[in-house]
Design a protein around this nucleic acid. Sequence first.
DNA 1: GCCGTTTTCGGCCCGACTGTTTTCAGTCG
Length: 575
Amino acid sequence: MPSRPSNAQIVRLFDLISDYLALDGESPYPLMAYERASRTLRDYPVSIADLASRGGLRELPGIGEAIETKVLEFIATGEVAKLDELRAKYPEGLLEIMHLPGVGPKTARHLWEALAITNLDELKLACERHALRGLPGMGEKTETNMLRAIATYEARSGRSLAGAVEPQAAKFVEALRAMPAVISADYAGSLRRRRSTIRDIDLVVASADPSAVMDAFAALPELAGTNERGDTKLTAVTHTELNVDLRIVPEPSYGNLLQHLTGSAGHNVALRAYAQRRGHKICEYNVEHVASGRQITCATEAEVYELVGLRYIPPELRENQGEIEASEEGLLPDLIELPDVRGDLHVHSDWTDGRATIEDMALGALEHGLEYMCFCDHSQSLAMARGLGPDRLAQQMEVIRELNTRLPGITLLCGIEVDILADGRLDLPDESLAQLDFVTASIHSAFSQPRAQIMKRMTNAMQNPYVRSIGHPTGRLLGRREPYDVDLDELARLAAETGTFLEINASYDRLDLSGPAVRRAVELGAKIVICTDAHYPTDFDNLKYAIWEGRRGWLEAKDVVNTRPLSEFRAYRKA
DNA sequence: GCCGTTTTCGGCCCGACTGTTTTCAGTCG
């Protein structure tokens, strides 16, 4: 009997089956069913194998008889016959190829059949040798685009989205804090610095009984297994195939270790050099006063910084980007916090690609303590999202205005996320835009245009008197799509000049603008709006990710327009 | 392959744009 498979192994099973079926030319609906099942299983927090063994699998949405049978087959035998059949027909490397942006199953299979390309390396070589342009439907541009896509793919290298991982890390911290032997617990590392992508979860614990903590931790149901275990350190792997490092120290050194493991490496090197010049030596267990040889342990991180003569530096700033100098000179920013945000100006509904009604989205915003919110559904050119033309937009306005009269506690505004078309025109006439309280303009097409054309589109949009903000200004999708070729400095200058706001989009696979871009934009005089781009009522929870990204960009509430009460927000005018 | 106050078959968000072409695959949220 094989050992119990991890959730990630089971999820991968169905990802593979649907990928191979796509190569095989199967109709799209079984594929969609496998993909849906895969998403459901991926989000399931504890052992799927246990659930399946109890016969509970079919209670999950999207799991029917066929998929349950395959999970049980996999648990019993470690194999699935259907997948083995498919594997025998196609080289595995085709799957990577078909997941490149701009490439699909048909193209991947075509490349294999016509040029015997079976993996990314061979594809790269073929592009470099211009072997693709001889094939029907492919040309010079195809080769360029594929080479760029391969480069992006190779750079992503196994990092996970912080927004997908943080809830799990927070649960680990909660579970640790509930253990009797635990005095303090936090996550550290890049997750604590609020990087948008992370490699693993670092957990730090203060306890006098490390062995008891490790025993209890290793038994948590979210863990698929443990790898190594010493006296003070344990490494494990979650069902989602994320590595978790647990470090345990005595309470007096907790601040030292937390500071050390939060990093970044660059920050710690700079901090130690700074401390050395002031006669101190910092290590992960204490701060040593070199002249006297006295070693001082720090129960809190703040003490570490105080001991070397610095003001406390928030984790988001610890990237060796001038934070030590700013701390020394008393010039650290007064960073924005989640409760500072009073309104959300980018919310979708089921009138386009949102998944909830206008009323449910409004209630979601109300429950999250927002004072105002603006519906900005898609405009007509985004047909797949059933984007709004002038007539449906007018109808939607009536619905929103009516609801606004009978929903106390929150003000509902009418807006649109209008597409900036490939030629720079907006997707709706000014007469429509003029009716609205707020207009966000976004690029959703022709991403690969040269910088001059992208900037022409941005300029046209920002110079429109009704466009109040630019949505997800660079279009990046973390780990999946590079930003379009935006000149950030020019964008920020234009934003400042025209009085157009720049968005921090809170979707955790966007976080666009990025922290560093925010810092630069504010330096150049741009004002920021922080928006969820919510498609579900629960998406208002994502606001915190945009706050984190903003904090990484040294952002203060005063530079964010939707931290203002509604009356002040309304008073902002375009230049 | 899943689902059902459309219950055991017939739906499954749906149309313009891009790069390459003369009929189409893939992408956009």
